[in-house]
């Protein structure tokens, strides 16, 4: 792993664990994040883990940037011994693929896209070697996803698919970011799926929409009463394709605050997963749907 440190202006240090995505890089970033948090370094104001990187914001009037850098590098040595295991949960997220709202939006920003003639899904299916959009959608929802970052905007999860690298789907981001994305759009960029927690700017390809709220600043949604942000790094997500009728029915439940997502407690062990991804995923899905 080629770990690289750089300053982001005079108030940030950004650490790229590796320039490519892997769950090993994610676990190293998570470990460094936890070590820095536990060190309670004076002057540190934000500690942000990402997919294969992490960032610290600090007050250079309190701790000199060079000293901050040295502290982080010395903590990095301890990440080697960290366990790549988590107690976490698996969550089912219903997805209405090829919905009318993301379709209207992607047509509006066609001139910012690599393929102005097609849709985002047609483009993604083609460049990933699928014969049809349907086959691409099948690959997108059949294996579960691992939340490897929360951010961009309030509570937005980035998800990495739990499959071998040869089966990973990859697409570029829009050539120029859009200024609008519908709330709860299921998007795709690089090897990451995301769910836009709020309406706003975005650069990811748009595949569909979920009826399930994942961010509620008022903390009124039944499963967001404890905290407004639903996802945290390490969560596992299974997409389930739904049609318009089920989307509408689920939205009606959400409006009445009677929707409860399907959630089960599980463990995740990176080495066990790598030894046999399909068998490991079957166990995860058994935990989600069994009994």
């Amino acid at each position: 792993m080629n770990t690289r440190y750089t300053f982001g202006g005079d108030e940030h240090i950004f650490v790229e664990m590796d320039d490519e995505m892997s769950l090993d890089a994610f676990f190293k970033g998570l470990s460094l994040t936890n070590l820095i948090r536990e060190a309670e370094i004076e002057g540190v104001t934000e500690i942000c883990p990402a997919n294969a990187s992490m960032q610290v914001r600090f007050d250079p009037d309190v701790i000199h940037p060079e000293e901050m850098l040295a502290r982080m590098k010395s903590l990095e040595a301890q990440t080697e011994s960290a366990e790549k295991r988590l107690r976490t949960r698996i969550i089912e997220m219903p997805v209405y693929y090829q919905d009318p709202w993301t379709h209207e939006t992607l047509m509006r920003f066609r001139e910012r896209h690599q393929d102005p003639e097609g849709t985002d899904l047609e483009y993604a299916a083609r460049i990933n070697g699928f014969g049809s959009v349907e086959a691409f959608i099948e690959a997108h929802h059949s294996a579960p996803w691992f939340v490897s970052m929360v951010g961009f905007v309030s509570g937005l999860p980035f998800k990495y698919q739990l499959v071998e690298r040869s089966r990973q789907l990859q697409v570029p981001k829009y050539l120029r970011p859009r200024t609008d994305t519908p709330k709860l759009t299921v998007g795709y960029g690089g090897c990451f799926s995301c769910t836009y927690s709020v309406r706003g700017a975005g650069g990811y390809q748009m595949f569909g929409i979920t009826p399930m709220p994942i961010y509620d600043p008022l903390e009124e949604v039944s499963y967001l009463r404890d905290f407004m942000v639903f996802f945290k790094p390490g969560d596992i997500v299974k997409y389930r394709p739904i049609d318009r009728a089920e989307y509408d029915a689920t939205r009606a439940l959400v409006e009445k605050n009677e929707f409860e997502p399907r959630i089960r407690e599980v463990g995740f062990d990176l080495e066990a997963f790598k030894a046999g991804p399909d068998a490991y995923n079957a166990q995860l899905l058994e935990a989600l749907y069994g009994n």
């Binding site: 950004f14 790229e16 590796d18 320039d19 490519e20 995505m21 892997s22 942000c48 990402a50 997919n51 294969a52 990187s53 992490m54 960032q55 460049i127 970052m149 951010g151 961009f152 980035f158 990495y160 690298r165 990973q168 990859q170 697409v171 570029p172 981001k173 050539l175 960029g189 690089g190 090897c191 990451f192």
Partner: peptide, 15 residues
Amino acid sequence: PFGAGSDPSNIVDGC
């Protein structure tokens, strides 16, 4: 790099 996307201005999403 794997996971970044094909445009040269793309990176693996970071902070």
